[in-house]
Design a protein around this nucleic acid. Sequence first.
DNA 1: CTGTTAGCGCGTTCAT
DNA 2: ATGAACGCGCTAACAG
Lengths: 343, 343
Amino acid sequence: MTGDSRKPASRPTVQDVAREAGVSPSTVSRALHTRGYASREVRERVQEVAQRLGYVPNHMARNLRSRTSTAIGVLISDLRNPFYADLAAGVEEVLRSEGHQMILVNDNGDPDEEMHAAETLLAMQVAGVIVTPVAAGCSKMLQDNGIHVVCADRRLGRNGCDAVLSDNKAGAQELTEHLIGLGHERIGLLIDETKWSTGAGRLSGFRAAHEHAGIDLDEDLIVYTSFDAEAARESTRELLNDHHVTAILSANNVLAQGALAEIKHRKLRIPHKISLAAYDDVPWMSLVQPGITTVDQHTVDIGRSCAQLLLARIRDELPARHRTIRVAPRLIVRGSTGPAPRK
Amino acid sequence: MTGDSRKPASRPTVQDVAREAGVSPSTVSRALHTRGYASREVRERVQEVAQRLGYVPNHMARNLRSRTSTAIGVLISDLRNPFYADLAAGVEEVLRSEGHQMILVNDNGDPDEEMHAAETLLAMQVAGVIVTPVAAGCSKMLQDNGIHVVCADRRLGRNGCDAVLSDNKAGAQELTEHLIGLGHERIGLLIDETKWSTGAGRLSGFRAAHEHAGIDLDEDLIVYTSFDAEAARESTRELLNDHHVTAILSANNVLAQGALAEIKHRKLRIPHKISLAAYDDVPWMSLVQPGITTVDQHTVDIGRSCAQLLLARIRDELPARHRTIRVAPRLIVRGSTGPAPRK
DNA sequence: CTGTTAGCGCGTTCAT
DNA sequence: ATGAACGCGCTAACAG
């Protein structure tokens, strides 16, 4: 009951178990893995001894020897953003159920930090990496080192790697068409980037909806803002002051916060005076009154798919050519969008 | 540009660098660590070669040899709950800046999963573990195996380990006193557990505030619900139907969602008809109209402190006796709490 | 089915 | 200042 040895209580090894069970170390190794030859009797004895001694296999030694590992690196931009948290949660769920571990790194959307983190993961000998990329060269670097990579949510450059993406264009188009269907003709788009497949896709869906409806899109209604709620709030101010919009479409959940803040500040009634819609459904959007009309990306599912895809790749169950999984988003109409006000 | 070898492109090792640089492996090892003797000339040459070959040290081999590791296990209950996400984000921030890695596991608040995860972390030879405990024996098991443990947010049983806690009693008391100060005398408390230090502390603060004000607390106003929004919603129904409360205090952010949902469903005006307050400030609480009066736990700071405490312990910079850091919460008054309605 | 041998990649002795 | 030898804990080969 003491067990209070100051030293890093060196834990029992296969040697200890072997000695205690009266067999050789390799027999212990075989007996503990379900695979491998070992007689029932020996297996049971070894397992009993291991249990009694509190033996826990040393992953580092095992991995070093067998040149494999079950750890998976996950590189995301911002854990405090529910989008990334959900993504990570989906990934972790599958990894855990399959006996893998998740090494999670927040790269703050910074390419340098991402590259640095990728090198660390390399050093740790992870079996694969799931990344929401921000640095163009990152996945290539990993792949060049024999590490499987799955891009989550977006793809950067022309790198050939497996990916799980939301169908951004379809989702944004549907959302925009919903607004147009309500009679809106001047819809402001808040968007932070269009270099990535996410922003590019959403913008293109926004355009496509206008084209489809025969509306000549005023380019001034597309406001490029930076990636934070405060910037979005200022951009919303601009849209509201100068461009006579009757609806605002936010390209992600963070920008939507800024838009909502400004609208609330002005005490504009939603949706009577202004409609608000956002890409990426997150919990607060159904808690506010009225609820925000959104596109649900099924973010947790995206995470799950990433993990499944990566594990399949690691187990070499997939054809060589890179696979892209597209998760169809779903429009959720809530109270924040309504008929365009009469002029 | 090809680099398309099918085999897990075995990466360069110290051997390769040594051969290429015309020195011995041990010299390479010394040259790459800042410490250790090596002539300037050799050191530079070795570093140049390592760079050119894309050499990345193998953590598993290093750790195996040196019997240390920089990986830290983090065990939390639910990554999708912003409380845990913020906690993890704070932990990760400090770990990363100090050259450590975070292995994150979601135990879903299940003691068995937690124990299982702890064993995995043990196998991975983590240098320490940060845990929001749910299984009583978990931290003891880890400590018995020589692994440093920091309990985050709550403590279970009488286990002696470092911990970073919110001052739940003070926070809940302040929040309750705020309500009492507004004239509320029948305040319903939604709480999911009181076995942990969190629930126990918050309940005790709730009681203390009543005592302090000389109000005889009706025990029926304390509703023990289970840990999900839907259960909280039903409990809210009960409070509203049978107990004539003028205010509801939710013991955490999840339960608050249920309470708000029911209040909105009944179209009760906040705060005129009913006041709502919640422990644990999360983003949606300042987005809804009116904003929810809360206690901010400084969750990210708690995470940071956990990591700092753990690293200090690992570096043996702390006296033997266990340290408990208490992070003072802060009352944030928003619009959801107002004077109690006249009878 | 089992034991013996060897070595994963590295850092740390000990010699020189 | 540098190289040779050894071993961390484990498992893949090989015998038997």
